[in-house]
Simulated scan of single mutants.
Amino acid sequence: PTQMAANLAAGLIDGYCVGEPWNSVAVEKGAGWVVATSEQLAPGHPEKALIMGGAFITRHRDQAQAVINALRESCAFCDAPENRPEVVKVLAGSGFFNGCESMLKKSLIGPFDPGTGQNWDASSFHIFHRREANEPTSERGRWLLDEFIAHGLLMPAQRADAAASLRDCWTSGALYFPEAPAAAPKPVSKPKKRKPLAHA
């Protein structure tokens, strides 16, 4: 993803599909414009999934539950508009988005500039926790199966078996899925500076 805007500017590719902030980087460079967002193409679509094997859950139930709890709490925090500036700072300081803080703001805070001369509202660009985003609902299961079949990842004859497998995973009582509390802004403590070590 980090190379896509540069390759577009160099004429090596004609377009690309990628997450932010790499679309905004291309717009900023004047190399391209955003045709559509995934939210516009498929509103409310599932995107990321946390997958664990049954054997891992059986052996490490507490750790698996801790990961789920932390992920849900993080999603709730990231979804709160008042926390977005802090999310931008954390991402910008992660080392993965060097020099992209202003680009990260475009989709996380808004307004989003698609490069067409008219900004878009960014409030629905990222859905981390709202709209039951973290819930494995039957509606999402049907959507996934329909899309898998439509794009040739599953044959229509496999639908019943795939649906049964999905239902087993999503209704499993192996783990408890708690409600994430509404997250309040949390200050990030900075590490204390250590005195340099003396060398002989």
Results as ranks from 00 to 15, higher is better:
Gly152His: 11
Met52Lys: 02
Cys78His: 03
Ala182Gly: 08
Pro1Lys: 10
Tyr16Glu: 15
Pro114Lys: 09
Pro191Thr: 08
His126Cys: 14
Ala198Phe: 02
Leu91Ser: 02
Gln158Leu: 03
Asp14Arg: 07
Ser102Tyr: 12
Arg142Met: 07
Ala198Cys: 03
Leu41Phe: 08
Glu135His: 13
Phe128Tyr: 15
Glu139Asn: 13
Val25Gln: 09
Phe77Ile: 04
Ala36Cys: 07
Ile13Met: 11
Asp161Ala: 13
Ala55Trp: 01
Gly11Ile: 07
Met52Trp: 03
Asn23Thr: 12
Arg167Asn: 09
Leu166Asp: 02
Ser165Ile: 03
Glu132Asn: 14
Pro178Leu: 03
Asp62Tyr: 02
Asn134Gln: 15
Ala150Trp: 11
Arg61Trp: 02
Arg167Pro: 00
Ser124Trp: 01
Gln158Cys: 01
Lys89Glu: 13
Leu91His: 07
Arg131Phe: 08
Arg194Cys: 04
Gly32Val: 06
Asn23His: 06
Lys105Ser: 06
Lys186Trp: 00
Ala5Arg: 03
Pro81Gly: 09
Cys17Thr: 08
Glu147Gln: 13
Leu8Val: 04
Leu144Trp: 01
Asn98Gly: 11
Thr137Ser: 15
Asn119Ile: 00
Ala164Lys: 11
Trp143His: 13
Ser172Thr: 05
Ala5Asn: 05
Asp146Thr: 12
Gly117Val: 07
Val87Trp: 14
Ala5Phe: 00
Trp22Gly: 02
Gly53Met: 01
Gly99Lys: 08
Thr171Arg: 15
Ser38Asn: 06
Trp22His: 15
Gln63Phe: 00
Ser172His: 10
Glu86Ser: 15
Glu47Val: 07
Gln40Ser: 13
Pro21Thr: 06
Ala184Pro: 04
Ala76His: 06
Asn83Leu: 12
Ser189Arg: 10
Gly110Gln: 10
Ala183Arg: 11
Ile51Val: 09
Ile109Trp: 07
Arg84Gly: 04
Gly110Ala: 11
Phe128Leu: 11
Pro136Gly: 12
Cys78Ser: 09
Ile127Lys: 05
Ala92Ser: 14
Gly93Asp: 03
Gly32Arg: 03
Met155Thr: 14
Gln65Arg: 09
Arg167Tyr: 04
Arg159Glu: 06
Gly32Ile: 02
Ser24Gln: 13
Val27Lys: 03
Ala36Pro: 01
Val87Arg: 10
Ala150Asn: 13
Gly53Cys: 05
Ala31Leu: 05
Lys29Val: 01
Glu73Pro: 06
Val25Ala: 10
Gly30Val: 10
Pro85Phe: 05
Glu179Ile: 00
Ile149Cys: 09
Ser124Lys: 15
Glu73Thr: 08
Val25Thr: 00
His151Ala: 03
Ala150Ile: 04
Thr116Gly: 11
Ala182Val: 01
Ala80Asp: 15
Leu144Thr: 01
Ala70Thr: 07
Leu144Ala: 10
Pro114Glu: 12
Glu132Pro: 02
Gly110Ser: 10
Glu82Met: 08
Trp33Val: 11
Val34Arg: 00
Ala70Asn: 05
Glu86Asn: 11
Asn23Gln: 07
Phe112Gly: 13
Ala184Asn: 12
Arg131Trp: 03
Gln158Phe: 03
His199Pro: 00
Ile68Ser: 09
Leu91Ile: 05
Arg142Phe: 00
Phe125His: 12
